[in-house]
Design a protein around this nucleic acid. Structure first.
Lengths: 120, 120, 120, 120
DNA sequence: GTGGTCTAGACCACT
DNA sequence: GTGGTCTAGACCACA
């Protein structure tokens, strides 16, 4: 769970995105409890208020549930819901920009796929 | 040369990116003079100081040369240099992140790239 | 922290140099927080934006770290890094030019340096 | 005779300094004719007006004489006069700043002298 | 509280 | 004509 302090993205956004990734990857499944604000704040040396803000975003999207006195839990069906939402957002917002870059740079699909295999 | 006033990206960053795109597209070639700060400022109704900031970024990357009292010029070999640099940067930095997202979302990179070829 | 308003050097460049000197002198050590932009701006009666520009230069040289919402901090190892870098730069870039001048003017480098030791 | 377009020093000042150096080095002696404005402008790809401005500075200091229809000539006693003026200026203005830097960086006189011998 | 961005308008130096 | 610098004042996002 790496935070980049020099990134233009605000910390709370980066945090939120990391947690979403962990849910998508199945590290946290429906109903699992999430690490506490204090724990994350200590580990990442981040202000607890900032961590709270990240969770708040997740609660607003109904991906995470706050249970008083117990902490944060992955919401019901969060995994699938998330996959759907993110997929749509990616295809609508991110991919067109990426496709434009690929075309402008004259990059070849084969090259891109090859690069993936050498890395991973 | 479209500027998005509501984007998270600051104007000067967007401007820089647009100019880079124009160089990549060959609209401006090595040694060409670029529109003056004031000209761009007037056309886009942006403060000259903001335009200046965009050029400064380009000068720092050795893509543009400043000639005192004369204006801004596309740097020697900027076109090819830029294409090479951007290609490598994209493959090494952006593409792995993008590919990670694609996999995580259960999308098919091959399919997306294939579509791209038929579209563009 | 003296600023010369009539110098050919712009204020932000002078400010940068002063801060570098303070780090070299050990007034600010690794990890220390630096005075805020607004504080310096008030004390020196300089526009905050000008102070900001000075810090930006330091951040670009990795001598200062920005922590969002918290302020500016002396970068890791900035003190030693700076001393090393500056020493080398001085020996390689400045000193040869200076020595050339000294020779051209018929002055004696040995004598000047010897005086320096008795003075300082 | 190298001109640095990215230097903060204006071109006419750089030109003036180069010519002064050539006189101090004895490349041009008292009474010698200097290259014409047009010649320098062509060789260095500089605007003739800028070259003129450099000569003007030299004329104002009585180091160079303009002879109508003939061109520029090194003034009487320019060599010695220059040496004296520059020596004083160097010792008063430049050396104290340099000495401060040397002390701050903790550079050793022996090191500086050694560096000179390896270079030249 | 912190820094980041932008504006409008001024003045300067350089070519 | 060109770009560079600075100001004063405003608004924003972040912690």
């Amino acid at each position: 769970m790496q935070i980049n302090w020099n990134d233009r993205d605000p910390i709370y956004r980066q945090l939120r995105d990391r947690i979403v990734e962990l849910i998508l990857d199945g590290v946290f499944s429906d109903g699992d409890s999430l690490p506490s604000v204090r724990q994350i704040a200590n580990e990442q040396r981040i202000n607890p208020i900032t961590v709270s803000k990240a969770f708040q975003l997740l609660v607003e999207d109904h991906l995470v549930e706050k249970r008083r006195g117990l902490g944060m839990f992955v919401g019901d069906g969060a995994g699938e819901k998330l996959a759907g939402l993110e997929k749509e957002r990616f295809l609508k917002e991110e991919w067109p920009v990426i496709a434009g870059k690929i075309n402008r740079l004259g990059l070849d699909a084969r090259l891109l796929l090859a690069q993936l295999e050498t890395d991973g």
